[in-house]
């Protein structure tokens, strides 16, 4: 469902003599099969968001190639948008000044969702995510947890085969977090939606992901099951300790010369 083949993305930053090239992602390769639930971990600045932007066609890779749902993201961005759902936990796709249900209507037009399918899916999602009480509330008045549930609904209204989540539980309280996780687990198990999840919350990983990939300095540092990840550290270590060791231990290569 997702194929990444030696993808790289570099940026030129600064100007004049301070001009240099930063490799946000380099030589990254992995595949994700249909129906997988994969956690994508990495310290801040490791290249996670850059990867997600390449997978969704927002950024073109500077080297290598990617395929998502059978499409080249950069070339077929619009077609791809109809097959994937994306949630950026720190941003919103909803219209700030409009009632939540109006955002969903716009998304129906945007993604050309058939009226009957739309009604059915919205009812289903509204039930599962408990949106009923704030459908008529302008988005700017929603709590973070409500807004996030709205954003997840928005990403799923067109029934995408792949769901990409960038920190979907950030800032949520324990109850909202548990509800969100429960929903995502069911979505993956019952609908077979492929999920790629980026998070700093290892609870998300433990509760949801069978497979974990870890990126650091733009390269894949680990790719395996949750148990294999645990096995990289001494027995009795928490997942947090294991991951922290991998983050700091994976030798920080000096930034490549321009």
């Amino acid at each position: 469902m997702i194929e990444v083949d030696r993808a790289g993305r570099s940026f030129t930053v600064g100007r004049g003599s301070a001009r240099r090239t930063v490799h946000a992602v380099r030589d990254l390769s992995f595949t994700v099969g249909a129906g997988e639930f994969v956690g994508y971990l990495g310290p801040n600045g490791a290249g996670k968001s850059t990867t997600i932007k390449m997978l969704t066609g927002v950024l073109a890779p500077t080297s290598g190639r990617l395929r998502v749902a059978g499409l080249d993201p950069t070339r077929r961005r619009t077609a791809l948008a109809r097959r994937i759902g994306v949630v950026f936990g720190q941003r919103t796709t909803l219209w700030w000044d409009l009632p939540l249900k109006d955002s969903f209507q716009l998304i129906r037009y945007l993604y050309k969702v058939d009226r009957i399918d739309f009604r059915r899916r919205l009812d289903e999602l509204a039930g599962l995510l408990d949106l009923g009480s704030f459908m008529d509330t302008p988005v700017r008045q929603l709590s973070l947890g409500q807004r996030m549930r709205g954003d997840v609904t928005a990403a799923l209204l067109h029934d995408p085969a792949v769901l990409v989540l960038d920190e979907p539980t950030i800032g949520l309280d324990v109850v909202s977090k548990a509800a969100m996780r429960d929903f995502l687990r069911r979505l993956n198990a019952e609908r077979g939606t492929t999920v790629l999840l980026t998070t700093h919350d290892l609870g998300d990983i433990e509760k949801l992901c069978r497979r974990v990939m870890l990126i650091d300095h733009g390269r894949l540092g680990f790719d395996g099951t949750l148990d294999e990840l645990r096995a990289t550290g001494p027995d009795g270590d928490s997942l947090e300790e294991v991951v922290a060791r991998l983050y700091t231990g994976s030798a920080p290569g000096t930034p490549a010369p321009p």
């Binding site: 927002v58 109809r82 919103t92 796709t93 945007l110």
Partner: peptide
């Protein structure tokens, strides 16, 4: 703010 990433995702 970078929110434009969301806009750029849309099929429009």
């Amino acid at each position: 703010s970078g929110d434009v990433a969301v806009d750029l995702l849309r099929p429009a």
